[in-house]
Design a protein around this nucleic acid. Structure first.
Length: 717
DNA sequence: ATAAAGTGACTTTTT
DNA sequence: GTCACTTTAT
């Protein structure tokens, strides 16, 4: 506690009531939250059972849990700490009796949700060119985040009318499948607390203190359910920073910060402005960028770390040169022992930008870790196995049934599936229930009603499903998985002799390893965990290699050296935000978040040309770069400077071969060819005893030091 | 019923 | 330049 600054202390020891902590980046907000919880338990005598703390990512929750554990040891037992979704998930299972679904509901991920929309579009005979499933889903999601049920959906245009019909049917499909999407978890919890006063009071009385992390990212559903949960004791402690609000497209509304002050007029506001992460130069850069956003509460970030190094602003010829510049810079700093590999992070606006970077790292034999992109849980084979498990857990899960009913092939084609679905609808059952009843002998009437061959194949699958279903409670998640994989001969199906097939099976084995961690826990816990982990949660420290990640994924993290790439208009700000001023403000905040991740050194890079679709086109530097004062930038005229051109247009060097001998001929960033080692990039060059000594990073070979006059280097143009 | 070939759409960020 | 979905050929 003594290590806290006065503002932090004020926040930690604040009394009861509503408290709003506006925490700038790197101002120790996680510290304040954890200390606050420890203070409530240790000093104010609040029982952990009466405290609720919510975060957005599992990672943040885990981190807080560990830190509280460090402070309190076992005394934190009984504390409710989790993400919005996991907390809602628990409440919904417990209170399912009041809701239109069963306790054993499954959670549909983004992919499943789109499949449902596609099915609905088909069922309603809509033109899927005119009504794109993704667009429809976005409209539905927005409505849910605003707590609008299908009946309340406002109709102003013909499209709204269609969306409303799709929404209605989408929601019916989910409920018939005993499934919830992510938005439902918040929506139904808010609905429950709103409609059932007794339930609301039970929870509101229980949670004497509620703490919320990243409050600026809450949407209407989250805000409402927090309000309900805090309705009895009204002790709500929220921490946030409107300048770091970057999830508007997911319904997040930083105006909830304003709403909070309206709803709790006697709330205490505490400002955390001292930064413990970055140099003043980096903070000044960040403020120069964010200050251009209108209607924000100005914050003055300051640090005691001193000015530090200037930031680097650089123009590269294209994405490829940008990537090799970064790799070269990283290799150089590592070779000079200036930094460790794990100190570096490369951030970009869109996941697609990671590919060229990956190629450059791969070519330099420099290990790296990539956050996000092709998710493990998104792999086809992984999804298949999860679908089997989900189907056993909840046979009404239509999406999972359709996924696995004919995988591996068992002669149930489109025709049979259509017959099954039509029949199931007639008898008011889910397809899964019909199959299950055919398999366990309780559905002989289905057998009579369906064509013989269809009934026979379905019954075959039904017998498998039924046997898994009866054994599911005796087996661990891993045991059940083994049983299913064996019964359907999944390995034989995957391993077709190709390398890809082998990889796929290895992924399944990785899933099995994850399941093995649930020996003592239920299938339910395993499935829920799979559904609610995100890329953000898989970021682990420790591997000591550079990190590649999106600006969104970077929130909450910090690195000694940060590269932000693709600072071009159209990329950042992204072209899809151009027409919407609010979206443009969010783009700016995104850059602000990226800049404030840096501790010591910041590189802002843009390209002269960029790849779009498949061809190269000229690109403008990001407009945000104009807002950065030149005195913060190293080399002052780094943009459009002759030196930059010289380095990254190697042909210029061929023209000036008559350079004086005492000056290095090779410069960092140049691409060269060596007779034995092939392609390489110059990292450094210096003159020693009239000889030029060059450090070069060779693709596939590594870092080499050569004497220029002996090495027969060829400059690549 | 399945594999191969062709088409078109799309790339913003994710619990 | 990639993916998913559709059509076409076997």
């Amino acid at each position: 506690m003594r290590e806290l600054n006065p503002q932090q202390q004020q926040a930690v020891t604040a009394g009861t009531g509503a408290i709003l902590v506006l925490a700038g980046p790197g101002s120790g907000k996680t510290r304040v939250l954890t200390q606050r919880i420890a203070y409530l338990i240790g000093n104010m005598g609040v029982r952990p059972y009466h405290i609720l703390a919510v975060t957005f990512t599992n990672k943040a929750a885990r981190e807080m849990d560990e830190r509280i554990g460090d402070l309190l040891g076992e005394r934190n037992r009984g504390l409710t700490l989790g993400t919005f979704h996991s907390t809602c998930g628990r409440i919904l299972r417990r209170e399912a009796q009041y809701l239109p679904f069963d306790q054993n509901y499954v959670i549909y991920d983004a992919d499943d949700q789109i499949r449902v929309v596609k099915q609905v579009v088909k069922d309603l005979n809509l033109n899927d060119k005119l009504y794109r499933p993704h667009g429809l889903h976005a409209s539905i999601s927005n409505a849910k985040n605003e707590l609008l049920l299908p009946d309340d959906f406002p109709v102003q245009t013909y499209r709204d009318e269609v969306v409303k019909r799709v929404y209605e049917r989408y929601q019916k499909t989910l409920l018939a499948s005993n499934a919830l999407d992510f938005d439902d978890m918040l929506l139904w919890t808010a609905y429950l607390l709103d409609q059932m006063p007794a339930v609301r009071e039970r929870y509101a009385r229980r949670f004497e203190h509620i703490l919320v992390d990243e409050f600026q990212d809450t949407n209407m559903a989250q805000y409402t359910l927090l309000k309900h949960l805090a309705s009895f004791h009204r002790n709500i402690f929220v921490v946030g920073d409107a300048d770091q609000s970057i999830y508007r497209w997911r319904g997040a509304d930083y105006r909830n910060v304003l709403r909070f002050e309206e709803d709790y007029p006697d709330s205490q506001v505490i400002l955390l402005e001292q930064n413990y992460r970055s140099t003043q130069t980096i903070l000044d850069t960040a403020m120069a960028v964010i200050d251009q956003n209108p209607t924000r509460t100005p914050k003055k970030l300051f640090t005691e770390r001193g000015k530090g190094q200037k930031i680097t602003l650089r123009e590269l010829y294209d994405d490829r040169e940008m990537a090799s510049f970064i790799v070269g810079q990283i290799a150089k700093d590592i070779a000079a022992q200036k930094n460790q590999p794990g100190d570096f992070a490369v951030m970009y606006r869109t996941n697609a930008q990671s590919r060229i970077l990956e190629e450059a790292f791969l070519a330099a034999y420099l290990p790296y870790k990539l956050v996000g992109a092709q998710r493990f849980y998104g792999r086809r084979e992984v999804k298949d196995v999860i679908a089997y498990l989900r189907l056993v857990y909840n046979p009404r899960d239509e999406i999972s049934l359709m996924r696995v009913i004919n995988i591996p092939r068992r002669g149930i084609g489109d025709k049979s599936i259509l017959t099954l679905r039509t029949y199931a609808q007639q008898v008011n059952l889910s397809s899964g229930e019909v199959v299950l009843q055919l398999g366990n002998g309780t559905g002989t009437e289905h057998g009579d009603a369906l064509p013989n061959r269809v009934a026979a194949t379905l019954a075959g699958f039904g017998r498998l499903l039924s046997s898994w279903h009866t054994q599911k409670d005796e087996l661990s998640p891993m045991g059940l998985m083994d049983l299913i994989l064996g019964d359907v001969e999944y390995r034989t199906y995957l391993e077709d002799g190709t390398e890809e097939g082998k990889e796929r099976w290895e992924n399944v084995m990785e899933l099995r390893r994850l399941a093995s961690e649930y020996q003592e826990r239920s299938l339910e816990a395993f499935l829920e965990n799979i559904a609610l982990v995100s890329d953000q949660d898989t970021i682990e420290a420790g591997s000591n290699v550079p990190t590649l990640l999106t600006l969104h994924a970077a929130k909450g993290l910090e690195f000694p050296v940060v590269f932000i790439v693709g600072l071009n208009d159209g990329t950042l700000p992204h072209i899809r935000s151009f027409e919407d001023p609010e979206a443009m403000h969010e783009e700016r905040r995104l850059l602000y978040v990226g800049i404030t991740r840096a501790e010591d050194q910041l590189y802002l890079l843009h390209a002269l040309n960029r790849f779009n679709y498949g061809y190269m086109e000229p690109a403008d530097p990001s407009r945000y770069l104009d807002d950065i004062p030149l005195e913060l930038v190293s080399g002052a005229s780094a943009r459009h400077s002759p030196s930059t051109d010289a380095i990254f247009r190697p042909e210029r060097w061929n023209d000036s071969a008559e350079l004086r001998e005492v000056e290095p001929k090779y410069h960092p960033g140049m691409n060269i060819i060596h007779a034995a080692w092939g392609d390489g990039m110059v990292l450094n060059s210096k003159i020693e005893d009239d000889e030029e000594i060059v450090d070069i990073f060779f693709e596939g070979v590594g870092l080499k030091r050569v004497v220029a006059s002996l090495a027969h280097l060829e400059v690549k143009s």
